[in-house]
Computed example of a mutant assay.
Amino acid sequence: MPTIAETERLWLKPYRMNMADGVYEVVRKQEIADTMLMIPHPYPRKQLEGWLDYVQKSFEVGHAFEYAVFTKEQPARYIGNCGLVSLSKAHRSGEIGYFIDPGEWGQGYATEACRKVIDIAFAEHGLNRLFGRCLVRNPASRRVLEKAGMVFEGRFKQEFFMDGAFEDVDYLAILKSEYAVSRD
């Protein structure tokens, strides 16, 4: 199994089935579903175990690398997710996705986790391009991507239909060469 990633304040760990209760306490919150493209509300508990199984298998075969996020201060308390999804090995590109428990918003955890996952994407997985996306009505998520080094590339109007309304989505990205310069 892959090793645990570490930042100054966080542990990023590959998902395990024994994390289900902690994960459920976060993903079941309305604020998470309201700001995420693919998380329903209410979140069915039974669906969580299927997702955890999928995430573990994807990690093991190298199709996606999603990490459970924990603080070093409370290492047993799950606070969110950050990872590489939608990987294309042929094009050496992928998407970064993340969410943090609403009770932990505003503390920089999402940015810190994203920076680490970007490091992993370029250093360990040989990606050349990484993109992230967020709902236009979620400027805090856009700021996370910008603080992690990504640059706005465009807006997809009415890209998703959620809760009876069309949603505009902003896309941001970073190239490996740009990231290397930003780290110097």
Rank of each mutant, 00 (worst) to 15 (best):
G149Q: 06
I118D: 05
D170R: 00
F160R: 14
F166Y: 15
A110C: 08
I100F: 02
D168Q: 02
F99C: 06
L145F: 05
Y171A: 11
A140N: 11
Y171L: 13
K157S: 10
G126R: 08
V85W: 01
A173V: 01
D163N: 15
S93F: 01
R92E: 15
K116P: 11
H125T: 07
M150N: 07
V144P: 13
L87K: 14
A113S: 12
L135N: 10
D119Q: 07
M150C: 12
V117N: 06
R155P: 07
P102M: 04
G164F: 01
V117M: 02
D163P: 00
F161P: 09
F161G: 10
A148V: 07
H125E: 09
G97F: 00
G132Y: 02
F152R: 06
D170I: 06
E153A: 06
K147V: 02
R143C: 08
R142N: 09
G149S: 10
R143N: 13
A90W: 13
A140P: 14
R133F: 12
H91Y: 12
A121L: 04
N128F: 06
A90V: 13
K157F: 10
K116C: 15
A173T: 05
V169A: 03
D168S: 04
Y171H: 06
P102T: 07
V151D: 11
S88Q: 10
P139E: 01
S88L: 01
K116I: 06
S141L: 08
I118W: 04
C134Q: 09
R142D: 05
Q107Y: 10
R155A: 08
I120R: 05
S88C: 10
I120G: 08
V85Y: 02
Q107C: 09
F131H: 14
K157E: 11
I120Q: 09
I96E: 07
A173K: 00
A113P: 10
V136W: 02
L135T: 01
S86K: 09
